[in-house]
């Protein structure tokens, strides 16, 4: 029985490791300027925890193979000091590994998300609501109109609660359901939630950030590849959560300028 267990453990170890090494189910291509740092950190985490995983599984298999079928019931050799030092030793070993990964990972994360956005970033306002995202650009005047939650009215497409009757800067604000951005230009988003917690998750951008009602949360990135990618909500936000998504469209600068001009003309 011990030998069979050893064989099964070894097969599981080899197959699962091979799946990771072959990148069978892996991340989508990175399309962001900062993504390489996240990917490198993820890779380091996978390698260090992977090596420990393989070593510990193979050790388990070895011991099961070698000693699993002893019938005399005697211990092979006790851990020095008994069970308590063994548990403490294991906890310290695993704790040190997790703490190291956390500290190194937090440094990478802070380097990406805790830094101020480029002052020349394109400012875009994001409103999340059950169960859609809307994006707002300041329009030709370069200024956002003030938002008044009590004026939100889906019937007239006033998703941000603008007051164009009194607020002239709100009149040319461009509101769209697709996040259209120029290639290689820093983007600074301001995230707001109308109702409950939501999340802005674009795997290709290596970004996942929660929306919290009552908070305006800044988020910045630069996209380095054109294309159309999906934005999904990853916070369970209600019955229609499964359908809460939008798209991000990365265009060359000239095409983006034309798009913005066309949208401004429709306001």
């Amino acid at each position: 029985m011990g030998k069979l267990f050893a064989v099964v453990v070894t097969i599981i170890t080899v197959v699962s490791t091979a799946i990771f090494i072959a990148h069978t189910w892996w991340l989508p291509p990175d399309i962001s300027a900062h993504g390489h740092a996240i990917d490198r950190q993820l890779s380091e985490t996978m390698i260090s925890s992977g090596v420990l995983f393989v070593l510990s599984q193979l050790a388990l298999a070895l011991f099961a193979w070698r000693f699993g079928d002893r019938e005399d019931g005697r211990r092979v050799k006790p851990f020095p000091g008994g069970a308590t030092p063994m548990v403490v030793f294991a906890a310290v070993l695993v704790g040190a590994e997790i703490l190291t990964l956390t500290l190194v990972g937090a440094k990478v994360w802070a380097g990406v998300f805790q830094t101020p956005p480029d002052p020349n970033s394109l400012q875009i306002d994001v409103q999340a609501e059950q169960f859609a995202f809307y994006f707002r650009y300041p329009g030709p005047d370069g200024r956002f109109g003030a938002t008044h939650p009590e004026l939100i009215n889906e019937a007239s497409e006033n998703f941000f609660g603008l007051d164009p009757a009194r607020d002239t800067s709100a009149r040319d604000d461009i509101v769209v359901p697709t996040l259209t951005i120029p290639l290689n230009r820093p983007i600074a988003l301001t995230l707001r939630a109308k109702d409950v917690n939501h999340a802005f998750y674009v795997p290709e951008l290596r970004i996942q950030q929660d929306f919290v009602p009552g908070l305006t949360i800044p988020l910045h990135f630069t996209a380095t590849q054109t294309g159309r990618y999906e934005i999904v909500c990853t916070q369970l936000c209600g019955l229609g959560h499964y359908n809460m998504r939008a798209y991000i469209e990365v265009l060359p600068q000239a095409q983006f300028d034309q798009w913005l001009k066309d949208k401004a003309a429709q306001q």
């Binding site: 995202f133 497409e157 769209v176 359901p177 697709t178 359908n243 998504r245 939008a246 798209y247 429709q266």
Partner: peptide, 8 residues
């Protein structure tokens, strides 16, 4: 205003 139904 034209309604953009990109989400669906």
């Amino acid at each position: 205003k034209p309604i953009d139904m990109a989400k669906e």
